[in-house]
Amino acid sequence: MDKFTVISGIVTPLDRPNVDTDAIIPKQFLKSIHRTGFGPNLFDDWRYLDHGEPGKDNSRRPLNPDFVLNQSPYQDAVILLGRENFGCGSSREHAVWALLDYGFRVVIAPGFADIFFNNCFKNGVLPIVLDSVVVDRLFEAVAGSPGYTLRVDLPAQQITTPEQEIIGFEVDPFRKDCLIQGLDDIALTLQHADDIRRYEEARWLEVPWLFDK
C-alpha cells in the first residue's frame, strides 16, 4: 500500500447523495480476478453513453459530456467531494480499487457507509468526514472556481484551501498510523499470533461445538 502523508490536487464535485458502490463500479467489472485496471470503468454508467463490458476498448466509447469526470479539468483530480452516505450498498472493494486506479486518493463527504469507509483505509485512500455545512461551502467554492484545489495533510489532520483557510478533520489514530506508514494489517495482526492461539484454546474449552466442523 502506498504511504499517505500530504496530497494536493484538484477537487471533483459529485453532487448527489447516496452514491452507491454499484454506481462507482458496475457489477460486470467485478468478474476480474485482479486488483487493478478498474479506473477506466469508474462510474461507468454515468461516464459513458453506451453499455460497458470487460474487455471493451474504453478509449473508443462515447463519453457523457454532462458527467463531471468528462469535463476539464476534472480528468486529473485526486480529491472527490461527495454528499451523504457515500459508498453505500455492496461491500465490493472494487469500488475503492476503481477510485484509486483512476487517481483519487481522498474522498470528502458528510458521511460514508461503514464498509466502504473501512475499505478505503485498506488501500491508501483517505475518506474524510466533514460537517455538511462545510461540505456545502466546498461545493460552492468548487462551482465558483473550477480547478479548485485543496491540500490534505494527514499527519496534521488539516485541509488547506487556496485562501489558506485551515479545516481540521478527525481520523482514527490506528488507521492514521497505518496510512502514514503504509502498514500491512496482516503482518501487524500476526504479531499477536500467540494471543489468537490462547484465545482459541480457551474458547474451545468453553464452546467446543464451534470447532466441530
Partner: peptide, 17 residues
C-alpha cells in the same frame, strides 16, 4: 460483510481489526 482485504485478513489470521 467485509471487503476483500479483510477477507484476506480473516483467511490469514482468523481475526479482524
Amino acid at each position: 460483510g467485509i471487503g476483500t482485504s479483510e477477507v484476506e485478513h480473516v483467511l490469514a489470521t482468523q481475526c479482524l481489526i
